[in-house]
C-alpha cells in the first residue's frame, strides 16, 4: 500500500497524483497530519513493551512506499491552545514555539516508524538547512551567490560593497504564507539598498544576505530519482518579477518553457541531491547574462505543478509511477 502524507490544505498535486494512482489501480491511502489530532488516528508508543510506534487504524506493515506532501500546520494546534489564554505576547510566543517543537517531536516518532520503507522524499532529509545546502552545492562544483549570515550592520555594509552594491535578503528558514481575510503575505526575496542598510540598528536579527545575481532567466528544476525536468522562467522581461518571480503578474504571466540543462550542470545537481540524501525536490537556479549557472536552493517539497503543466511534463503521472515501482521492488 502506498501511503500519502499530506496536510489538510488543498493540494492540487496530491489530487492529480491520486487520480493517476486510481488510473493504475494502485492501492493507496491518504492520511493527514491532522488525523493524529482529530481522533481519526490513534497513537501508542510504549517503551516498556515492544518499543513500537502503533497506529491501530493504519497497519504500518502494509505500507510499501511513502509520498510526503506536507503534514501539519502548526498554527491550527497553537490556536487551539492559545485562543482563550490571557497572557503576555512574549509568553504566547514562547508557548507557540514550544508547542511547535513538541508537534515536531511527535511527527518525528511517526516518521521513524516508517524509516525502512521507500520514501519520496526521504523523511529524515526534509528539514534542509540553506547554509548546509549551499556549502554542499559548492562542494559538488555548483556556483553559488556570495552569502552572509550576520547580525552586524558594519559587516553587512562591507558585504554590500563586496557584492558591487547589489544585495538581496531572504528567509534563512523556509518560506511560508500568512493568510488574512482579503490578502496573503509571504516571505519573499527583497533587494536591499544602501539606504535600507543605513536604517538598520547596529545589531539586528541574524539574517541571510546574498549578492544579487543578474539573471538572463531563472530555472526551476524538478528532480525525481536521477531524472531532471527543467523549466526556464523569463522573469526579466517584467519589472514586477525581476527579483522574485513569485510576485506573479497574472495579466501577462512570465514565459515558462522546457529547458535542457547542459549535462555538466545536470550531473552536479544529481551529485548534490545524493549528497543531501534527497530522492526528489525542486531546485532553483539562475542563468546569468554571462552564461553562468548559479545555484540558489533546493526545496524537497516544492510545488511541481507549476513546472509540469506549462512544459507538459506529466510529472504527476511520473510521481505515481515512481511510487508504484517502489512498492514492487
Amino acid at each position: 500500500m502506498i501511503l500519502i502524507l499530506s496536510s489538510s490544505e488543498l493540494n492540487i498535486s496530491v489530487e492529480h497524483v491520486a487520480d493517476w494512482l486510481d488510473f493504475y489501480q494502485a492501492d493507496y491511502k491518504r492520511i493527514l497530519g491532522d488525523d493524529f489530532f482529530s481522533g481519526s488516528q490513534t497513537i501508542a508508543y510504549q517503551l516498556d513493551e515492544e518499543e513500537e510506534y502503533q497506529t491501530p487504524n493504519l497497519d504500518l506493515k502494509q505500507v510499501s512506499s511513502i509520498w510526503f506532501r506536507g503534514f501539519i500546520r502548526h498554527r491550527t494546534y497553537i490556536k487551539n491552545t492559545t485562543d482563550d489564554l490571557q497572557t503576555s505576547n512574549s509568553n504566547l510566543s514562547e508557548l507557540s514555539g514550544r508547542i511547535a517543537k513538541a508537534l515536531h517531536k511527535n511527527t518525528n516518532l511517526f516518521f521513524k516508524s516508517l524509516k525502512d520503507k521507500p520514501q519520496l522524499p526521504n523523511l529524515q532529509a526534509l528539514k534542509t538547512d540553506k547554509m548546509d545546502m549551499l556549502t554542499k552545492a559548492k562542494k559538488v562544483g555548483l556556483r553559488i551567490p556570495k552569502t552572509l549570515v550576520t547580525n552586524n550592520k558594519q559587516k553587512l555594509l562591507e558585504f554590500y560593497e563586496a557584492c558591487d552594491q547589489k544585495l538581496i535578503t531572504k528567509s534563512l528558514y523556509e518560506c511560508v504564507y500568512f493568510f488574512e481575510e482579503d490578502r496573503a503575505f509571504s516571505f519573499k526575496t527583497h533587494l536591499l539598498s544602501k539606504e535600507d542598510i543605513l536604517n538598520f540598528e547596529d545589531c539586528f536579527f541574524p539574517s541571510l544576505f546574498q549578492g544579487y545575481v543578474e539573471k538572463e532567466y531563472e530555472l526551476r528544476i524538478f528532480y525525481l530519482d536521477g531524472e531532471l525536468y527543467s523549466m526556464a522562467i523569463f522573469s526579466q522581461l517584467d519589472e514586477q518579477t525581476q527579483v522574485d518571480f513569485r510576485r506573479y503578474n497574472d495579466e501577462k504571466p512570465n514565459r515558462t518553457v522546457p529547458y535542457q540543462l547542459p549535462d555538466e550542470e545536470a550531473q552536479k545537481i544529481c551529485d548534490l541531491m545524493q549528497m543531501l540524501n534527497l530522492s526528489t525536490g525542486s531546485i532553483d537556479m539562475i542563468k546569468t547574462k554571462d552564461d553562468q549557472f548559479v545555484f540558489l536552493e533546493v526545496n524537497p517539497n516544492g510545488q511541481f505543478g507549476m513546472t509540469s503543466f506549462p512544459c507538459n511534463y506529466h510529472l504527476e503521472q511520473k510521481v505515481a509511477q515512481h511510487l508504484i515501482q517502489a512498492t514492487q521492488s
Binding site: D19, D22, F234, P258, Q260, P262, N312
Partner: peptide
C-alpha cells in the same frame, strides 16, 4: 508580443512534447 527571443543556446530550449495523457477514463 513576447512570442520569441534571440538566443545563442537554442539547443537548450526544446519544443514542448505534446503527448496527451490524462488519468480519467
Amino acid at each position: 508580443n513576447e512570442l520569441g527571443f534571440w538566443t545563442h543556446e537554442a539547443q537548450n530550449f526544446p519544443p514542448i512534447d505534446f503527448t496527451f495523457q490524462e488519468p480519467e477514463i
